[in-house]
Write a protein that binds this DNA or RNA. Structure first.
Lengths: 198, 198
DNA sequence: TCGTCTTTGGACTAACCGGTCCAATAGATA
DNA sequence: TATCTATTGGACCGGTTAGTCCAAAGACGA
């Protein structure tokens, strides 16, 4: 699909994705034009289509992968472990710290998925897959908790992970509307309390 | 701002808002053009600007009010009461029933707020106010629960209402990405479990 | 019936946007 | 050096969009 890249080409491509990711996070897909991206990255129109032959939609897909990677990395090493209550606590703190330090509020993945559903369903499915992968890691953690006896044996890891992930995404949405980290903290504290009660 | 309306005018205006609300829910603000709305309501461009002199942004504001009203109404009589666990259970069921019966997934208010933050901050603040009103009703319910001794005296109604509301909004977001009611049910069950644990 | 205000129709515009295309340049390889 | 490919610049285009404008039609009270 994409042509073979030299080191310079890869750098340009990365520069485009990174800048575009930031702009899209701030203004949404609809609020960010290719010309905005072109201006901010000091590239030309032909470069955009050289590196992303599929146009804006393909670029958005690349942004999603980039952001998914960044967000998941920020939750490590806790996210992959999540075997003890301490791990969960550490995870909560890592999430709060990460999103609190970002230049813009909200979740780069969740907001993207939300917007794309209505305008680019195929790309939305791709973003949704990233979200489901993320939730899957939480489900693995819940399962570990159950298998070590911290949770009732008849706890439902899938349902619980959905609930935790919903709290996270909802907290991030409210974080964006309220321009404050408070809702995310309250949401995650609530999610952990729910887990402990299970 | 808006001219004086006769009965016919009010009916036309309502028709525009209702149809536009549905289209925006399905395709987002960016995915819905004034021409789409004009076509679906069999009106003319001048009518759109006659009833919404502020243009698309003002129409979006009217849509938000319309949807807020519809969504809050669907949660009655539970939402205004929320004094016993039965009320909360009834509320949960009413929410699930309402969103499960809608022609499109997701929350008409949350998704709107999410999109507007990046493109129309002033209008986003208006939508956020609707959300905060909604959350305030939940907070009142939590307070009632605490005052009747169902909750620990040192429970924090604001934090708990934020957590419940985040679960709700996150559940609705996942409902839209997964095209299934399951995440909303899991999220609300989790939120109620969290409340009981408090 | 007359006059006024509301309602409606639809042509028009200016800006924007995603995408195409062609030509020039830089860099790697042989 | 010669050549092939990757990279870059930027003009250009067709379609779409929000918004404007003017005039006609309808409603209703005096």
């Amino acid at each position: 699909m994409a042509p073979q890249l030299t080191a310079r080409g890869a750098a340009t491509r990365a520069r485009i994705v990174e800048s575009a990711a930031e702009q899209v996070l701030a203004g949404g897909v609809g609020g960010t034009s290719l010309d905005d991206i072109r201006a901010d990255t000091e590239t030309s129109k032909s470069q955009l289509f050289h590196y992303f032959p599929g146009g804006k939609s393909e670029l958005v897909g690349a942004i999603a992968s980039f952001q998914a990677d960044r967000v998941l990395t920020a939750q490590e090493p806790y996210l992959s472990r999540l075997a003890t209550w301490d791990d969960w606590r550490g995870w909560r703190d890592a999430v709060v710290a990460h999103y609190g330090s970002q230049p813009h509020w909200g979740c780069p993945i969740g907001a993207l998925a939300n917007e794309l559903i209505g305008t680019d369903p195929e790309r939305a499915a791709e973003v949704t897959a990233h979200m489901d992968h993320w939730r899957g890691l939480l489900e693995a953690g819940v399962t570990r908790l159950r298998d070590t006896g911290e949770l009732s044996p008849d706890a439902d890891p899938r349902a619980l992970s959905l609930a935790v992930f919903a709290s996270l995404q909802g907290g991030l949405l409210l974080t964006a509307t309220a321009e404050s980290i408070e809702p995310l903290e309250a949401a995650l504290d609530g999610a952990l309390a729910m887990l402990r009660a299970a």
